[in-house]
Nucleic acid binder design. Structure first.
Length: 216
DNA sequence: CGATAGATATCT
DNA sequence: GATATCTATCGA
């Protein structure tokens, strides 16, 4: 993707990221996945954002920086979340990548997810042999793609972590659903979460209020 | 399904 | 000291 792509309105970027390819290269190998779910965060203006009312700390510093950079943060004592910064430099806007559909490096994703599970003190239950379990959530996909604090502030236009145009032509058209964002306590009225309708890898489908279909 | 424990960096 | 853009498990 180009710099211009990310400079635009955050919700627009979130929508347009659906169907694009998240690519990750490490010494272990390469993993790829199609983005199927994303949320927009409007920094200073957004009660749900880490940068609400201009809060600027070492942790959320990346949000304030230039577009196309990664904002990776650690939360709940064990999880990393991946965002891409949008808007103009100095604006604190970002898109949270919430789910992808695995395309390449699936065995590697399995290995990484399994390793993480075993490191937790849970009772290492049987791993459900379900592809969806690899990447259908923001903290799951960062495990599967080995994304941690180290990837914070790297430019996602051309790095070992980047987003590419979908050239494979797989699923060229789809319906986009817009609904409230997940896991927030304020700013729930706005429909800033977008996902590909009917896609199996979407983290959570909201039946309650339903979403709005926005075909692009 | 719904409820809750889990672990810790970061902020107030 | 409280909180967090969550996940896995357990119980009904």
């Amino acid at each position: 993707m180009t710099k211009e792509f990310y400079i635009r309105d955050t919700a627009q970027v979130a929508r347009d990221l659906l169907g694009k390819i998240l690519v990750r290269k490490t010494a272990e190998g390469i993993t790829k996945g199609m983005i199927v779910e994303a949320e927009a965060y409007y920094g200073e203006l957004d009660p749900a954002s880490h940068a609400y009312k201009g809060r600027r700390t070492p942790r959320n510093e990346a949000m304030w920086g230039p577009p196309s950079y990664a904002y990776v943060y650690f939360t709940y004592g064990m999880y990393y979340m991946l965002n891409v910064v949008t808007g103009k430099d100095g604006e604190a806007r970002a898109v949270l990548i919430r789910a992808v559909e695995p395309l390449e490096g699936i065995e590697l994703m399995r290995k990484r997810r399994k390793k993480k599970l075993e490191s937790l003190k849970f009772g290492v239950k049987n791993s459900k042999d379900d592809l969806r379990e690899l990447t259908n959530g923001p903290a799951k996909l960062t495990q599967a793609f080995d994304i941690t604090r180290k990837e914070n502030k790297i430019d996602m236009i051309n790095s070992d972590l980047k987003i590419e145009e979908n050239r494979g032509g797989l699923q060229s058209s789809f319906t986009i659903v817009a609904c409230p964002r997940i896991g927030i306590k304020q700013g729930t009225e706005k429909k800033l979460r977008f996902y590909i309708d009917e896609n199996l890898f979407v983290s959570k489908v909201i039946f309650k209020k339903g979403g709005v279909n926005v075909t692009s």
